[in-house]
Write a protein that binds this DNA or RNA. Structure first.
Lengths: 337, 337
DNA sequence: CTGAAAGCGCTAACAA
DNA sequence: TTGTTAGCGCTTTCAG
C-alpha cells in the first residue's frame, strides 16, 4: 500500500482532513473554489481512497460474497455473469467461494462472514447440506442472504429458482411421449431442494402415465465422474435397463453418453436422454442433446437484484423478492423417435 | 455488522484490549491461564475479528484479485478452480472481476486496485488490450501481478503460459499429416500474445510444409458468436474453402460446427477441425473434437503459487517464477482420415 | 465555509 | 505478564 492519503492532500493544501473529505464527496458545505483545488490535487496525485478505512468507519464493505459448489459448470458460470453484471453496476465487489460440495467448507465460509467481511451473500448450497444452523447463525446477524438454484427453504429470505418440478415433469412426459416406458432419473442428492423437486416432477409424470414402480427408477450420483460413469454403465448393463434417462444436472451427461458408447447403445434408438443443462455445445453433441435449459444468467441477475434491494433500502422483506423463472425444454436429437 | 469486538471481551474479562489481542494470537507474553479465559469467552460470544480493521492496521488485505475476460469458458473456470485451491490453502480471499474483453473495464478495475484493496493480482488481459500504461501504473505501486494465459510481456513479472507456439505447430502439422492442404487459423485478436504465438506456430508449420500463401489463411473473430458464425460460414462457402481449421479458442468450436452443419459439410470428411479447448464434452461432440487441451487447472494453481511467493517473502523476483506448462494434443474424430 | 476532535476495531511500541 | 498509548485512513458531529 503506502499510498497518498487525505492527510497528505490536507497538508499540501493547508486544509483540514475534514475539509478534504467533504470536498471529495462534493458536500455543499465546501466552497466551489476549494472543491476545485482539492479535486485537482487529488487527480494529480492519483488519490484513491482506502476502502478498508472507509469500511471500518461505515461498517459496510461494498462487497458481496458468492458461495457455490463449483464454477466449472455452465449453469454456475452463467449465473456468475449475471451476478457480476449487477454488482458492477452497483459499484460492489464480488468475493467468490467454492465449496466443491463440501458441507464443512460451507460452514467455515459462512462462519467467516460473521466478521462483517461482506454486506450480503448469494449462495447455492452443497449437495451435502442437510442442516442449516450455519446459515441461520449468519442470517440472524442481519447479513442478507439470497439463495439461487440450490436453495434453503428453512431460512426466511428470497429464493430464486427455476420451475424445477414442472420442467422435470414436462421432460419426463416428453420421454414418455417418445415411447419410453422404462425411465431412470439421475439425481445428485437426497437433501437438495432442486434434486427433490426434479424428482417429484419425474415421479408425478410417471404416475400420471401409470408407469409407477415398474422399474428401479433412480440413481443417486456423487461428485466423482468416474464412479458416476460406473454406476450408469452398471445400470445400463442390466437386462431390464431403462430406455429413457433424465439427468438432473449437466455434468452427468458426459457419463451417460460415454457409458452408452462403451456399451454400444445408441442414443436415441436404444435409450433417449434429456438433461438439465446450459451447455452451449449441446447442439453439437453426438447426438445433439435435448435439454432443460435453465435461465442461468437471469437467475444470477435476479438474485443479485434482490440482494441489492435489501442492501440499499431498509425494511425490505426479502422473502417477497422470491422468484421462479421458467426453464425451457429444448428438444434435440437425443430424444428423437 | 455490529459485532462483538476485542473491547467487549476486554471489558468482560477486566483486561486490556492489548492483552486480548495478544492472547488471541497466542503470543508468548500472555499467561496460559488468561489465554484460556480469553479463548473461552471468545468462543462463547462467537468473536470474529473485523478483517477491515485488521487490514487498515496491517496495510494488508489478505485478498487477491482475479481479473479475466470471462468465466463461462472452460479454460478460465478451471483456472479459477486452481487459483481458489491455493488461495483457500493460504487463507486468502478471492475477488473476481470480469472484463468481458473490454479494455476500458480493465483499466477501471486496475485503477481501483491502486487503493490497496488487494495484495496481489492474477490476470489474463482482454483481446483489446494493446497498451499497458494501466498495468504499469499498478505494478509500479508494488502490487504484485502475475499473468496467466493471456499475458503481457511488457511488465517485468511472472507469466504462466502454455506452449502456445509448439502446440499450435503440432496441431497444424497434425492437420497437414491428415491430408489438409488448405488451412485456416481462427484468431480472436491481433494484439493478444496467445493469438500471435498460436498463429506463429501455425504459420511456421505451413512454411515447413511449403504451404505458405496458397490461401487466405486467417480470420479474426470477434466477441460475438453470431457474427463469428457468419464469418466462418461465409468463408466455408467460398470455392476455395479450407479443408482444415484450427480454432484458437474454444468458443469458436460451436460456430465452426454449426456453420459446417448448415452448409452440409461433413467433419472430418470435408473439413477437419482442431481447437484449443478444455471442454469436457469434447469427447461426446458430433464428431468428437480433436483438441489442444490446456493445463488450465495447473496454470491457475501455478500462477497463484507464484503470486503467494511474492506476497509471503520479500525480494522474490517474480520474473523468475515464469513457467510454461505443456498442452496436450488429444486426437479424436474431427481430424480423422 | 472550515477545523478540531473523536472513533470505527485492531495492533505494536513502550511502560509498568 | 499486563496495560497505556498512539495510530492505520476516513468520516462525522460539533465549534468556530
Amino acid at each position: 500500500m503506502g499510498n497518498v492519503t487525505i492527510k497528505m492532500l490536507a497538508k499540501q493544501l493547508n486544509l483540514s482532513t475534514a475539509a478534504i473529505s467533504k470536498a471529495l464527496k462534493d458536500s455543499h458545505e465546501i466552497s466551489a473554489a476549494t472543491k476545485q483545488r482539492v479535486l485537482n490535487l487529488a487527480n494529480e496525485l492519483n488519490y484513491t481512497p482506502n476502502p478498508y478505512a472507509s469500511s471500518l468507519r461505515h461498517r459496510k464493505s461494498k462487497t458481496i460474497a458468492v458461495v457455490l459448489p463449483e464454477v466449472a459448470d455452465s449453469f454456475f458460470s452463467l449465473a456468475i455473469n449475471g451476478i457480476e453484471a449487477i454488482a458492477e453496476e452497483k459499484g460492489y465487489h464480488v468475493l467468490i467461494y467454492l465449496t466443491h460440495e463440501s458441507f464443512l467448507r460451507e460452514q467455515a465460509i459462512l462462519k467467516d462472514f460473521q466478521s462483517g467481511r461482506v454486506d450480503g451473500v448469494l449462495m447455492s448450497i452443497t449437495a451435502e447440506t442437510a442442516t442449516y444452523q450455519h446459515i441461520h447463525a449468519l442470517h440472524s446477524k442481519n447479513v442478507p442472504i439470497v439463495f439461487f438454484d440450490r436453495v434453503c427453504d428453512e431460512i426466511n429470505t428470497a429464493v430464486i429458482t427455476t420451475n424445477d418440478y414442472e420442467s422435470s415433469y414436462k421432460a419426463t412426459q416428453h420421454l414418455i411421449d417418445a415411447g419410453c416406458k422404462k425411465l431412470c432419473f439421475l439425481s445428485i442428492s437426497n437433501s437438495l431442494s432442486i434434486s427433490n423437486k426434479r424428482k417429484q416432477g419425474f415421479l408425478k409424470a410417471l404416475a400420471d402415465n401409470q408407469l409407477v414402480a415398474q422399474f428401479s427408477n433412480e440413481i443417486i450420483c456423487g461428485n466423482d465422474s468416474d464412479s458416476n460413469y460406473k454406476l450408469i454403465k452398471q445400470m445400463m448393463q442390466q437386462k431390464n435397463r431403462p430406455n429413457g434417462i433424465i439427468a438432473s444436472v449437466e455434468k452427468l451427461t458426459t457419463d451417460v453418453y460415454l457409458a452408452c458408447k462403451a456399451l454400444k447403445l445408441k442414443i436415441p434408438k436404444d435409450v433417449k436422454v434429456v438433461s438439465f443443462s446450459n451447455l452451449s455445445a449441446a447442439t453439437i453433441l453426438n447426438p445433439s442433446l435435448t435439454t432443460i435449459t435453465q435461465p442461468a444468467f437471469k437467475m444470477g441477475k435476479t438474485a443479485a437484484t434482490a440482494l441489492f434491494k435489501a442492501l440499499e433500502k431498509k425494511n425490505v422483506v426479502l422473502k417477497n423478492e422470491s422468484q421462479v423463472i421458467a426453464s425451457e425444454l429444448v428438444v434435440r436429437e437425443s430424444t428423437k423417435n
